[in-house]
Every structure is written in structure tokens, then in C-alpha cells.
Amino acid sequence: MGNAFEIRNLNVYYGQHQVLYDVNMNIRERAVTAIIGPSGCGKSTLLRCLNRMHDLQPGVRVTGEVRFKGRNIYDDDVDPMEIRYRIGMVFQKPNPFPKSIFENVAFGPRINGYRGNLNELVERCLRQAALWDEVKDRLHASALSLSGGQQQRLCLARALAVEPEVILMDEPASALDPISTAKLEDLILELKSRYTIVLVTHNMQQAGRVADETAFFLNGRLIEMGPTREMFANPREKKTEEYLTGRFG
């Protein structure tokens, strides 16, 4: 299988402060890649580099290359809207729009000029997000009436509705209870046959359960990356081992 992303010499600065140092890594297509590390290690920053969300924050500077399907998304002629449309994102805290369930899922297709059957698309996405059975009778109720776990799956359905090639997830389970978390993890495993998934998590067990590959970050540097099972069993780096055995973090 090919690579979805090839990251080359990536450095990120918040003002004077450097938060990512010279990151080089490949992210495989149609696999789950987990990015782990203690808080403040730069893992969320890396994720936001993959769909140019940093464009929205003043004072952030990115150097190096992030090649998506061979094309550097930081080239001048690349349209960030196009990138974000092809690379979906699920945020740490569920952030459904204060609209109906239906309108939340239909949001992306609508703004991108979708002309097909919206009802079908919404149903398909809600099914993919394993939410359909719970909400099919109240599609026009406010999304804010859903529970936290349901809201997060709605946000996933919303991201799926623009049929992205990649889904970025920024600690998507950190605000959820264990049952909702388990549901979300099952979903991730189901979705990886069709999507490239990049998952930021502070939860090593979660990475162990769902990720094919894992990258460990510490203080803004990529320490080690490899197949999850191999890395968890046999970390090459001392720091990785210390983190995995809970010596810090």
C-alpha cells in the first residue's frame, strides 16, 4: 500500500517558540496511524499541519513539506479549502453546530455544492458512524440534544459526508465515557478499510487497540515510529520504553 502523507523536514513555530523539530515520517494509506506522547509534545500541532488548520491561527509558521498523494499541500497554489475538504477532521471536544442532526451532516455537502440526494447521503453517513438507529426518528431535532458520545459520532458522520480521503482525529475520545469510547474505537476499525485515519491520543492502550502504526513524539521531536505491535513489544528507543511503561507522561 502507498503513502497518504510524506512529511519532510517539518518545523512549526508559534511566534518565537518552536513546537515541532524537523519531523520526517510517512503515513500509510488506509491504515490507522496513532500519534502518541505526553501532553505538549506537539502531536496535535502535527495533526493540524495535515489539513492546514494552522492557517487560521495568526502567528503560526510552518516550514518543510507535507506531501499529500505526492503533492506538497503548503505550495502556494494549493487551496486550503480543497485540502480541508479532502481531509476530514474530528476534534477533541464534540463540536456539533447548533442546528438539527440532519443539517449537521448535510453541512459539508451543501457548502461544497453537492447536487445528489442529500437524504440518502445523510443516512449513509449516519449509518457509517453507527448513529443511524439512535437518531433516525428525530433527524430534525437539535444536535445539542444528543449525548456527548452521540455528538462525537455525529461529528464523525459530518466529516464523512464530504467523502474525505483521510480522517484526522484529535483525541476524539478524551471527552467520552468508556462505553462511547469503545463504540468509537470499533468504528475506527471499521472505517480503516476505506479511509486513511490519523489518530492523536494520549491513551497508549487506545493506540494499542486500534492503530496499525504508531509514532511517538516527545518535546516536539519524532522519537520512534513503526508497526504498533512491534513498537509496543520492542521499543527501539529508551525514551519510548520509558513512556510505554508509564515512567513519565
Binding site: M53, M81, R84, F91, N95, F97, G108, R158
Partner: peptide, 13 residues
């Protein structure tokens, strides 16, 4: 801001 970023992340202008 989370709502605004949520919309941008879907490719909205």
C-alpha cells in the same frame, strides 16, 4: 472557536 474550526475543517470558505 470550536464551531468555527469545525466548519473550516469541512472545507468551508
Amino acid at each position: 472557536v470550536s464551531l468555527i474550526h469545525g466548519a473550516y475543517a469541512l472545507g468551508a470558505t
